[in-house]
Nucleic acid binder design. Structure first.
Lengths: 200, 200
DNA sequence: GTGTCATCATGACAAGTGTCATACTTGCTG
DNA sequence: CAGCAAGTATGACACTTGTCATGATGACAC
């Protein structure tokens, strides 16, 4: 079974590679430290499974999953991430991931998950799946999300407006809408809430 | 060489354990998922080296290092962490750590770092050390730090004032001072900057 | 093709935020 | 003891942010 591994932290990448490599039926044919590199590696090696982190430089795991599904649908994707956020799980599955495994889980589950996925089964953390089922859907529009994200990083209304070529008034309108949708009292709280739900 | 490993994410803990275990001269005698458990494991096994994460439940790596230095000074401590924050490095060394290694580094460096530390050498990421050396000390007073922390979580001026029994004007004064010290343009940016430096 | 929704805009007002000058108290420290 | 830093407070001002009403446009779905 041939695997490509994408994970930005060198130490973790190396360790996971060894962990998978000791399984007799699994071979790690390439590992990548960012999404772009991972995409090229998938194109070159056409692996059975891509194991990828979500938060990576240049191309996130979610964006990577979309591109892989489009160009190399025979490669199945396993998201391996720190974040137990229902919104992430939902987006991962929408992006075409076949599995979603938390880094919290025992390391013994990884090889097993890879095997199940390569057989065409879905692998989803059961606690998280239950939570995601009851969880509200992301109410934010793309624009609202992008603007809230920038504001949450400390950009002022004027900076966001310049960055997106919008008028300041428009930016304030979107933020007002986002704050109200999140049930928050200001942009900071709204961004923080959205982050914990996995919507940013 | 006997090692205890403390790391809260199961997947990473298992993988690092395998990574270290394949070295012929290194034996992982115990691994722990939180600080308390790690402390008990050190007491029981008296390892040459404790490899520990910083951000862990119940007892952080920094607190753990202090306790280990007091009770089991023959065990040397290697901090293994995600965060390249000068403030963290400084605090880790003050807490008695003998090394500070980033999870960003290649996995090949881990075994090497463990060996050097067990020989009594210090291991500090050189980029980070340089940065920490040139880095300013935290300019924030306790009050400023506390107020900036709360504001950064989304509390409004009024909420912070209520929470700390201060007048709103005073809170605004502290925030103004903190923003200016951080060279930021607003409270959000100031909090974000302070966080990346390890001051919050 | 008629609604519905996302996007973008303006203007006006209210509320919140950031800055500055000024001043009093308290606890160190030389 | 004098000086200094930290903490606290007020008032005033400018600027930013949040809210609301209103309207134009284009895309998509039924």
């Amino acid at each position: 079974m041939r695997v490509v591994l994408a994970e930005d932290q060198g130490m973790v990448r190396g360790a996971l590679s060894v962990l998978l490599g000791i399984e007799p039926d699994i071979e790690v044919v390439a590992s990548a430290s960012d999404g772009e590199e991972a995409f090229r590696a998938v194109g070159k090696h056409r692996p059975d499974v891509l194991v990828t982190d979500i938060e990576m430089p240049r191309l996130t795991g979610l964006e990577l999953a979309v591109k892989v599904r489009e160009l190399y649908p025979e490669t199945r994707v396993l998201m391996l991430t720190t974040f137990a956020r229902p919104g992430y799980l939902r987006r991962a599955l929408e992006a075409g991931a076949h599995g979603y495994l938390l880094k919290d889980r025992p390391s013994t589950e990884l090889a097993d998950a890879v095997r199940r996925i390569s057989r065409g089964q879905r692998v989803v953390d059961s606690d998280l799946a239950a939570e995601a089922w009851g969880a509200e859907a992301d109410p934010l529009s793309d624009r609202e999300r992008e603007i809230l994200r920038r504001a949450g990083e400390g950009e002022s209304t004027a900076e966001v407006a310049r960055g997106l070529r919008l008028s300041e008034g428009t930016v304030r309108n979107y933020l007002s809408e986002a704050i109200s949708k999140m049930g928050a009292h200001n942009r900071i709280e709204a961004a923080r809430l959205a982050r914990t739900k996995g919507w940013l």
